[in-house]
Design a binder for these strands. Structure first.
Lengths: 211, 211
DNA sequence: CACTTAATGCACTAACCAGTTACTTCTTTA
DNA sequence: TAAAGAAGTAACTGGTTAGTGCATTAAGTG
């Protein structure tokens, strides 16, 4: 095996990675329709031809970017090890994690929005994703069951609905940060505003599940 | 005053209205970037020239469509007369109204998403909007105050946060209907699923505010 | 009915953009 | 080291699209 060389003149893997990185950024910034293939190539310091060589076309590239985005958040969620925490704390951790992930990976939200504008047509060919999602719902089901057993939580809560709500209360605030800041006449992205919102969200979820 | 004639050959107001209607549809379907001016003109049974004549350009048209969308939902909210209801019922009504409005006016969500992709740059020139929003927050503040006084609601709930949460739990579910249906492996838009979600949302909000 | 003003239609253009063709340069390995 | 194939480049193409110049036609007015 050849050693890794820093200034390699040719490196397919590195070029692919740079293209994906640049594509994630460009798609997140302008959506699928507004993204420019030339801009992705420039920013990746690659030739446009390489995009077609490695990925097929603009929409194929978008598909891979989406897959990475979904698998990325799922893989981070898996590392949480919520089963080691008491139910309330586990749920609170998940709310905090979800919020912070959206905050630190704002492109995730924009990519999902763009994919919904296109009626999920790109991810529909990625069978790994529903599979990954089952894991998330299972995780929350587990927490709910433990909470029920200990009497902390009430019975009959739908894990999928709870999951959706945990995502919703963070996602909505952040995806609408621009119109929201203007309409509510305050900077929703200020440190204090963000802390307030997270605290409010934790409260919302805990009140929703407690007996 | 001339009488309204059905088959008027020239009618500026009617043409403007048809263009706005077609534009709302096209912008909602494809976003600002993906929308086609020719398509708007065709669907409005107007000549493309008219769009530039009446509205200035594509982005100006988008601005007016957004303004109408925001004023539309606010004007519907105003008609709710929530002050006539007991606090809990008033809040429940608002949750149901918000959900149903999004459901019946899906273009509202897509337009807002598109505007956030563009960092709210179009609505920023519309000073009527923050003004209209103050009314909404005021409405919720009123309900909260009445609930506090009667002992039904706990104290110290932020009206803006509650507003955001009421919107969020409906908006997120509906804007992500396509990816959601695929990832959760169920049709989120089925009648029963919609009813379940609305019931869950009412529960979420009432549990959040009750003492 | 003239005459003015506003509404409408058509055909064009300048810019843009996804995708391709034809080529050069580097790397690997037999 | 020579051949083969992979990585990379630049210039181009065909189609699309926002926006316009100019002519035409209808409606309102004195």
């Amino acid at each position: 095996m050849a050693e890794e060389k820093k200034a390699k003149k040719r490196d397919a893997e590195a070029t692919k990675a740079r293209i994906l990185q640049a594509a994630k950024r460009e798609f997140a910034k302008h959506g699928l329709g507004g993204a420019r293939v030339d801009e992705i190539a420039d920013r990746a310091q690659a030739n446009k031809r390489m995009i077609y060589h490695y990925f097929g076309g603009k929409e194929d590239l978008f598909r891979i970017v989406l897959e990475e985005a979904y698998l990325g958040i799922r893989s981070a969620e898996k590392k949480l090890d919520l089963d080691a925490l008491p139910p309330s704390e586990a749920l609170e951790s998940l709310v905090r994690f979800t919020w912070n992930y959206y905050l630190k990976n704002p492109e995730f939200i924009t990519l999902v929005n763009s994919e919904n504008l296109h009626r999920a047509k790109h991810i529909k060919t990625l069978p790994s994703l529903p599979n990954a999602m089952r894991g998330l719902v299972g995780m929350v089901e587990n927490i709910l069951k433990r909470g029920e057993d200990s009497g902390e939580f009430r019975k009959g809560i739908d894990a999928a609905q709870l999951n959706i709500t945990i995502a919703a209360i963070g996602y909505y605030y952040l995806t609408n940060r621009y119109t929201g800041s203007f309409l509510f006449e305050r900077n929703l992205m200020e440190k204090e505003a963000l802390e307030d919102r997270l605290a409010f969200n934790v409260e919302t979820i805990l009140r929703l599940v407690r007996s």
